[in-house]
Amino acid sequence: MIVAEQKPLNEIKTMIADAERVLLVGCGTCVTVCFAGGTKEVDLLATSLRMSTKLDGNGKVVDEFTVQRQCEWEYNEPLKEKLDDYDLVVSLGCGVGVQTLNEQFPQKQFVPGLNTAFMGLPTEQGVWEERCAACGNCILDKTGGICPIARCAKQLLNGPCGGSQNGVCEIESDVPCAWQLIWERANDLGQIDRLMELQPAKDWRTSRDGGPRKIVREDLRLVAHEEE
C-alpha cells in the first residue's frame, strides 16, 4: 500500500488561512488502511480545524467527504456538485490523489493534508515499513524476495557494505541489513550459489532517472480500438 501520514495541524491551518469554506476529502483506499486519510481521520481533522480556527477568532466552515479512491476519475465524480460551495479543498489522499483532483477539477484548488511517505506494509499494529521503491525493473527473483533497492540504504546489488554489523545497518540500530536478510534467506532456500553471480550496474532508466514514467497498454485503450 501507499503509506502516508497527516501533516501537522498548523501547516494545514496555514494552507487554509485565506479560505472561509473548506472541504476535506478523504480517500477510502491506501490511506484509510494506514490510518492517515480515511473517513475517521477526515472527521478528526475537520473537528480539530473547526475548533482551532474558532479559538483563533476566525472560525471556518469545514465539511467532510470521502471517496473510495481519489486516484481514479470515476470515483471523484460525486465531488463535482459539492465543489462550488467551497473556497478550497484539502485532500487527505496520497500525492496521486491530490494531483488527480487538481487535474480533474481545474476550477478549484486542492491542497495536500498528508505527506505521502512510501510503499510498504504494516509489520505490526501502528508500524509501517518501506518494501518497494518502484524502480521499474524487479530483481526480487535474484534476492530471495527481499529488495535491496528499497531496503539497503546504499541500494547495493552485490552484497553488504562495511556498515553492516551483526545483521544491522549502520544508519539506524533498528534497521536490519538488507543483504544480511538476503543472505540468510538464500541460505534457507539452499540458493547461496545464486548470490555468487555478479550483478552488473542497474539500469536506472526504468526508475526515476528516466523522468516521469508511463505505461501504455494498447490492448486496453478504448481510443486505440476506435481508431482500428
Partner: peptide, 8 residues
C-alpha cells in the same frame, strides 16, 4: 472523534 465533537 466523539470526544472532540463533544467539546466542539
Amino acid at each position: 472523534v466523539q470526544v472532540l465533537k463533544a467539546f466542539e
